[in-house]
Write a protein that binds this DNA or RNA. Structure first.
Length: 776
DNA sequence: CATTGATCGATTTTT
DNA sequence: TCGATCAATG
């Protein structure tokens, strides 16, 4: 351990410098179970990294005996670089996501579960296609049960460790659920047959492996002297069991989280894991990090007031020594266009008049971005939408990777079906279906079936095309297994041999987007080159190092064959997003509240703060309001300096105009913390039952505004028609000729509005200004 | 076998 | 509204 930073007294003190008492306690705590309740902006990452540094530098824990688990790769790399800055070389330390860490264990001993080491990792798209295949095999019409319903139920079952048999039992004769259970069972077999793991499997099978094999269990249990888990409130049951098992021997388990920020129930997070941690471990040391270093007093108090309404939570009260700051701004626009304009104007004003550089617009659902984007574009404000498509999820990139996948794992029928006719080579659905049949009947892979095409009458028609495809795969596989060329070169050969590059070049003549796709493909080659450098240089090495060797020793045993590099590369593309690929800094960041978690901005705009949007309609139906409230808390606590919340009285969403009152969360914010600005010219919101002062103020302002609007109307030339502002969908209306009808939708167009009306004879649209309409 | 119109349906998302 | 997905046609 020669390359660690010096552990002089000065070094030691700097580890604790600037930490508050609670933070110090968390860093210095000996061991045993520890629950660190870290409020938003309380310096959580700092505490974790400093604790790791303390363990290594002061307590002389070898880095390879520390396991630190995060939820995202982004969080992991952040933690790694900050820990490395404090400690020095930490290559041997296991810092990473659950999936990355468990994959390490799985790779080494997957044969004990009946899997081969070159296994594929199925992404959600593969998963869907796998379920489709299973349905076809079972002769189930894939319209009876929605695909997403099946995949999500299977995923939930896996997260809860419910086996197909158990799921069938809990179906209690319900044929719908019974079918899903049978699909689940066949899907598991399907994955095994194809030597593939889906994301849930990576965790579930690792748990199974460790539970069933005492030697492996003992090996990892003794190895990890200290285990740290970040974002513990978002763990699911499998993750909970994994952590529990791995920590069972030394019991030095520090979990860090914030129950108030648990917002991933929909993907299996179980808030009980954090709420019951003390109960599960009676000797737990609980540390509360309640001092916030991010937001103003006002923002914090407003957020506290909102979250305080939740019943099931560990009470926590964030406080700050920071300034009081400006009140929270609330703006109620007349419609979605006005809302977007307000936000965009406000940002434009601040961009030119202040030195602020951080702006984020947050929303509950991504459908809300459209108007915002338009408003920003109109004003020439640059923006970026956070959390779009991953680089590795682009079609052209996935196609190339599918060729590599198939070369590495010839049993991967999903990869095969993806690219057997990409680019087009005359192998259609019929042929693919026939291949599937032959492969199932003969118990061989589809690639093997294609190889034997001439022996099977169903395949004779496409035999020529199939032979050409097999020849391509043979060349690639020969290159992979026999050649000592570089991996990047292999990737380039894939693009050439497959004809993908040629195809894109041809497409460029007619299709402008083909250029981008070609660029992406070339980018993939440089990406592969970069990865290869890292891999051979030992940076990825720790992932493959045998447990108890130093990185140097491990370097000698590492497999540097092309196939090993390819396997590692495929793993990276399956598991890593590319959110770190920083693009030019935009003026404004647009993102969902979910993806804003963990981030902070000087100026935050929370838009669409309306009932049925936030909280969402389905959250209300499912009685999931506490989670929505936590989401609101997360949104508010992203703001450092200024928080603006907006809502619209009418909003065109999913092709319908909705009229929703402002979000109930607004009424939880004490009035003195809010400044309501500007406004609309329409009817007041539906009176809230909360009787909050804010709503009364809103109504007062509103009646003033209405008076003004009425005056303006009187001065303006009188126009015919009806006062559409008082109407809402569902109201009845009369037409001179068509008689009585029901309003379906109202689309404002300035003074006027388009009314979609259902009459006895069908639907018609009218301008509200048309003199032919009258209210009943 | 590839292309085209109808139909459905729509929170949130990482790995 | 908009987009993806899917059955029917040339």
């Amino acid at each position: 351990m020669t390359d660690f930073k010096d552990t002089s007294k000065a070094g030691r003190e700097s580890l604790l410098a600037g930490l508050n008492n609670e933070q110090k306690k968390a860093v210095l705590q000996d061991g045993g179970p520890m629950l660190i309740l870290a409020g938003a902006g309380s310096g959580k990452t700092r505490v974790i990294t400093h604790r790791i540094a303390h363990l290594v530098l002061e307590r002389h824990v070898p880095p390879w005996r520390i396991l630190a688990i995060t939820f995202t790769n982004k969080a992991a790399s952040e933690m790694k670089s900050r820990a490395a800055a404090l400690i020095g070389n930490i290559d041997a330390m296991w810092i990473g996501t659950f999936h990355t860490m468990m994959l390490r264990i799985l790779r080494q001993d997957c044969h004990r579960l009946g899997f081969a080491p070159g296994f594929s990792i199925l992404d959600s798209d593969d998963q869907r296609r796998a379920v489709k295949d299973v349905l076809k095999d079972m002769g189930i019409d894939n319209t009876t049960i929605p695909l997403r319903e099946i995949t999500s139920r299977i995923s939930f079952a896996k997260n809860e460790m419910v086996s197909p048999a158990e799921l069938a039992r809990t179906a209690h004769g319900n044929p719908y659920l019974g079918t899903i259970a049978r699909v689940y069972e066949n899907y598991v077999a399907y994955c095994k047959r194809h030597n593939g793991f889906d994301f849930d499997d990576i965790l579930l099978y690792t748990l199974q492996l460790l539970r069933e094999h005492e030697d492996l269990r003992a090996r990892y249990q003794t190895r990890f002297l200290h285990i740290l888990v970040d974002e513990y409130q978002d763990t699911n049951r499998v993750q909970y069991e994994l952590v529990k098992l791995l920590a069972a021997h030394h019991r030095n388990l520090a979990v860090v989280g914030d129950d108030d920020q648990s917002i991933y129930r929909f993907r299996g997070a179980d808030i009980r894991n954090i709420l019951d941690f003390e109960g599960d471990n009676p000797d737990t040391t609980v540390i509360r990090l309640e001092q916030n270093y991010r937001s103003t007093k006002t923002i914090l108090n407003a957020a506290n007031a909102v979250i305080d309404k939740n019943e099931s939570r560990k009470k926590k009260q964030l406080w700050t020594e920071g300034e009081t700051g400006e009140p929270v701004t609330f703006y109620l626009a007349s419609d979605h266009v006005g809302e977007a304009a307000f936000v965009a104007n406000d940002i434009r004003k601040r961009l030119s008049s202040t030195a602020d550089t951080e702006y984020a617009i947050l929303y509950r659902a991504s459908a809300l971005t459209r108007n915002i984007e338009a408003a920003l574009r109109e004003r020439g404000i640059s923006y970026a939408i956070f959390g779009g498509m991953r680089f590795y999820d682009r079609k052209e990139v996935k196609d190339v990777n599918a060729y590599i996948r198939l070369a590495v794992n010839p049993g991967d029928n999903l990869a095969l079906t993806r690219i057997i006719n990409v680019p087009k080579r005359g192998i259609g659905d019929q042929t693919i279906e026939a291949l599937r049949e032959v492969s199932a009947d003969m118990n061989i892979s589809m690639l093997e079936a294609a190889r034997q095409a001439s022996m099977h009458p169903q395949l004779s028609r496409a035999a020529g095309a199939l032979a050409r495809f097999v020849a391509i795969m043979d060349r690639l596989s020969a290159l992979l297994h026999e050649s000592d060329t570089s991996f990047a070169l292999l990737v380039e050969r894939v693009t050439k041999e497959s004809g993908l590059a040629k195809q894109l070049e041809a497409d460029m003549l007619t299709d402008l987007s083909a250029r981008t796709r070609l660029e992406n493909m070339n980018e993939l080659i440089s990406d592969a080159l970069e990865f290869e450098k890292k891999y051979l240089g030992g940076e990825i090495l720790a992932a493959w190092a045998d447990d108890f060797k130093s990185p140097e020793e491990a370097a000698e045993t590492i497999d540097d064959s092309l196939i090993a590099v390819a396997t590692a590369y495929l793993e990276q593309t399956a598991l890593f997003s590319d959110q770190d690929r920083a693009e030019n800094r935009p003026d404004v960041n647009l993102m969902t509240i979910h993806s804003a978690k963990g981030l902070e901005f000087q100026n935050v705009y929370l838009v669409g703060a309306e009932e049925r949007i936030f909280p969402s309609a389905q959250a209300e139906e499912n009685d999931d309001l506490e989670e929505e409230r936590r989401l609101c808390y997360v949104a508010m606590t992203r703001a450092k300096k200024r928080l603006t919340i907006t809502a619209a009285r009418s909003r065109l969403l999913y092709g319908r105009t909705q009229y929703n009152p402002p979000s109930r969360f607004l009424s939880d914010i004490p009035d003195e913390l809010v400044n309501e600005v500007g406004g609309s010219k329409q009817a007041p919101p539906r009176q809230s039952d909360s009787g909050s002062q804010l709503f009364r103020t809103l109504s007062k302002l509103d009646s003033l505004r209405r008076k003004k609007a009425d005056e303006q109307k009187r001065q303006a030339p009188e126009h015919n028609g009806i006062v559409w502002q008082t109407l809402k969908p569902g109201d009845s209306i009369n037409h001179v000729r068509l008689g009585s009808g029901e309003i379906l939708a109202i689309t404002p167009t300035g003074d006027n509005a388009i009314l979609r009306i259902r009459f006895a004879g069908g639907e018609r649209r009218f301008l509200s200004g048309s003199g032919e309409l009258s209210v009943e």
